[in-house]
Amino acid sequence: MNMRWMRFMVFLLLATLLNAGNVLNTISVTSLQIKPDLLLITLVFFSINIATTDAVAASFAIGFAADIAGGTMGPCMITFGVIGSFISQLQRVVVMKRMIHQAAAIFVIALVAGGMVQLLSSFKTDESVSNVCRMILGGAAYSAVAGPLVWMFLSTMASWLGVQPRQHSRLSHR
């Protein structure tokens, strides 16, 4: 099944609006307004489920969208692009059928991506954000909790986007 890029762009725009807007504040927690990172969950989903070359392009596109949503251009595009490309290379050995695996993967990737984005942002903006560690950790945990639900939604949207979710086991590829 071929990836439908125009639909992907529309979907990405909607996800970006959700990520950047106030809607997700309804489910934010703590005084730090921690909320799940929809774009990061989307990154993991697409990196795992689409062809590796498409995944590279999709990862950078999602990173670009995350930069637009975050207000600082560059950090997310580099981070998401590199991490998404790396994850896409693991498609043949990693299959996330169970929710716990999806949550664990999202949690780890969110931690790594959060650290990288903050590092790159500090180079670019020369600004300090307080409670960085708590925000990254909290965001990763919340994304991991919300991840499987978003994953289910993305799976239902998969055919419309031209994505074939991987259902096979690791051994079937050998």
Partner: peptide, 8 residues
């Protein structure tokens, strides 16, 4: 702007 105003 839709939704409760927050940290953003």
């Amino acid at each position: 702007d839709v939704g409760p105003r927050g940290f953003s």
